[in-house]
Nucleic acid binder design. Structure first.
Lengths: 218, 218
DNA sequence: CGGAGCGTTGAGACTTTTCAACTTCCGTGG
DNA sequence: CCACGGAAGTTGAAAAGTCTCAACGCTCCG
């Protein structure tokens, strides 16, 4: 059974035999850009492995202010275990494929499968470390540093050559960095004017001077 | 063997028999306010359960700017598993007691102990959710909201009656909220002037109008 | 052609930081 | 007992940074 995530996701800890059991409770699903997988406030009933694409994890204020608190890439685990109500909304930034599981079925399967929880724990620890690095950025960095660091990060993850196609628009970049769309736009323009990047159009970004960006990113 | 964390920490998942094995690799340690348990950059060799007290988890820039990315309370797990190098510094805010384990000894013990990893996973997921709530605050809220929310949070965790003794000074509050010490001070004064809190002295805070604070916190 | 969505640019308002001075609190030593 | 010194907290004024509001440009698509 061909699954692009076979080696990276939770599945990697499963033997082929146990994997069949997992497949019995899972199903594939395609999400189109903009589609919502999980709504904050709804019962936390589904989890998934992201096979391809990019998802955003969004938290919202009572006032409606929103902050993207996580980006999910292929291999990442999606959803909230052990809680009854989702506190975060999960939305596809670009078309995405997932292995979807009902939480009720997955949790016992994880317990039954030695090593699965260890793998998820490892992943959760990594996600936590990443979230905390992000916190440092949100709390302590200025707009130019935020944008430069973000571009380097996206390039590291999704880049081909010196180019990246951002999986989101300016608005979502702002939601990630804790900035307004206008500030993001201005910083991008400033980086372009400084000759550090080129903006060939759309969501494409070329890093002309990664070292210079890194210097700004701090 | 009397351990105040017996029921809350990882130990809770261990049978009494297995707990002896755990005790064989662990040792108690007292940390005085200001003492460092783990230095970022050092090999990640120790983990612990916090028995009493409060610790701060600090990240640092290359430029020396710091951000507190986590506070640890009794029952919380301390340290970074599965990585060779610590990326965060852990410091006691007030005198604290811990059960200390060498990471090399703890990791196999966790694997051998069914349920232990599940428990840590549960805890890690909770910590992650908390970190993300914190991110929303760092990225999207103004100083008055940050301070009001912080005071409510501290009161919920450490409060007695309508009063709290903050386990840190203004400077550390600023490091938590992503503000300068002066801004924190000004906001506290403003809350006092508005009659929402009283500052009896030292690190004591009395919440005179929790509902009003909650309104500001948003 | 017209409209919608997205991005850019500008100007002024607002918030927070920075820098500096001053106060308070405490423990120490004269 | 009181003076001294340091650490922590407060306050003020100016500077810097970001946001808000508003206008405009561009592209895609009906």
């Amino acid at each position: 059974m061909a699954c692009a995530a076979r080696e990276v996701a939770v599945c990697a800890s499963f033997t082929d035999g146990a994997l069949s059991a997992l497949h019995a409770i899972g199903r594939r699903r395609t999400l189109h850009a903009g589609q919502v997988l999980i709504w904050a406030g709804d019962p936390s009933s589904v989890c998934a492995n992201l096979v391809s694409g990019v998802l955003k994890v969004v938290r919202e204020d009572l006032d409606g202010r929103t902050q993207i608190v996580g980006l999910l890439f292929p291999g990442d685990f999606v959803g909230e275990l052990f809680v009854e109500q989702a506190s975060e909304t999960v939305i596809a930034l670009v078309d995405a494929d997932l292995c979807l599981y009902s939480r009720r079925a997955l949790e016992p399967a994880l317990t039954a499968q030695p090593g699965a929880e260890a793998l998820l724990l490892r992943q959760a620890m990594g996600t936590l470390t990443e979230a905390r690095r992000w916190m440092l950025m949100l709390g302590r960095r200025h707009a130019p540093e935020k944008v430069a660091a973000f571009l380097l990060d996206m390039h590291r993850r999704l880049g081909t050559g010196d180019q990246v196609e951002l999986p989101m628009g300016r608005g979502a970049v702002g939601e990630i960095l804790g900035l307004t769309i206008e500030t993001v736009s201005r910083q991008m323009t400033a980086l372009k004017s400084a000759g550090l990047i080129a903006l060939p159009g759309g969501r494409q970004v070329r890093l002309l001077d990664p070292a210079g960006l890194a210097r700004i990113a701090g």
